[in-house]
């Protein structure tokens, strides 16, 4: 246990330090890289509490896909970040308020398990430790809450369609490769063998 506690403090300290670096580093690419490191350490914390499935999904989805696209976009941004930082003082109060609310909510969620005696009875899913957590998550998402899950999927689909509709534009006169057409061409239709008499051309 002592070792697990030690690892917890290492992961937690690195996560917090990375979080600080995300908002303080001057270079936005460095910010994203620190964010990735923070994700990674959060995955480590998940492993420590025995939620290895969530840890791996966090790495696959956030580090492996979402953050790659972040990095992709941020690397190609051509914004003067010094100018952007000028108005930072205006947003400090809003940011601090949001952060404060979030912190209080997290603290409430974390402490209510021990302070409120009847909170534990509210859980619907299987209790961790009794079943393999991959199966537990599958049970909760795909069996108990299947309609909500499908609803969330629909919302994401609509969002995706919206993004496509907004960016899709039809440009006339652009040649596109149609592979089926290319494959379906036969030499009989396209090639004619001509006998060329000397001196007269085709």
């Amino acid at each position: 246990m002592a070792f697990a506690g030690f690892m917890f403090y290492i992961f937690a300290a690195i996560t917090v330090a990375c979080g600080v670096m995300v908002i303080t580093s001057r270079n936005p690419v460095h910010s994203v890289l620190y964010l990735i490191l923070a994700f990674f350490n959060a995955a480590g914390l998940f492993v420590l509490i025995g939620a290895e499935f969530l840890a791996m999904i966090l790495v696959v989805v956030y580090v492996g896909a979402v953050a790659v696209l972040f990095l992709f976009v941020v690397m190609m941004l051509d914004v003067n970040f010094v100018a952007l930082r000028k108005g930072v003082k205006k947003y400090v109060y809003i940011g601090a308020t949001l952060g404060g609310v979030l912190f209080v909510e997290l603290a409430l969620a974390a402490t209510s398990w021990t302070l409120g005696p009847d909170v534990a009875t509210l859980t619907l899913g299987p209790v961790a430790g009794e079943v393999h957590n991959t199966r537990a998550i599958g049970q909760v998402i795909y069996t108990d809450y299947i309609y909500l899950f499908q609803g969330a999927g629909m919302i994401l689909l609509v969002a995706m369609l919206g993004a496509i509709v907004l960016t899709l534009r039809s440009r006339p006169g652009v040649k596109k490769q149609v592979i089926a057409d290319q494959v379906n061409r036969s030499s009989k239709d396209e090639v004619t063998v001509v006998k060329v008499p000397t001196g007269s051309g085709v």
């Binding site: 990735i36 290895e52 499935f53 791996m56 999904i57 790495v59 696959v60 580090v63 492996g64 896909a65 790659v68 990095l71 393999h132 991959t134």
Partner: peptide, 18 residues
């Protein structure tokens, strides 16, 4: 010999892009 071996492999191979 972890329970989520396939996911671990998938996660690591998706990090290769970095």
């Amino acid at each position: 010999d972890i329970n989520v071996g396939v996911l671990y492999l998938f996660a690591i191979s998706s990090l290769g892009v970095y």
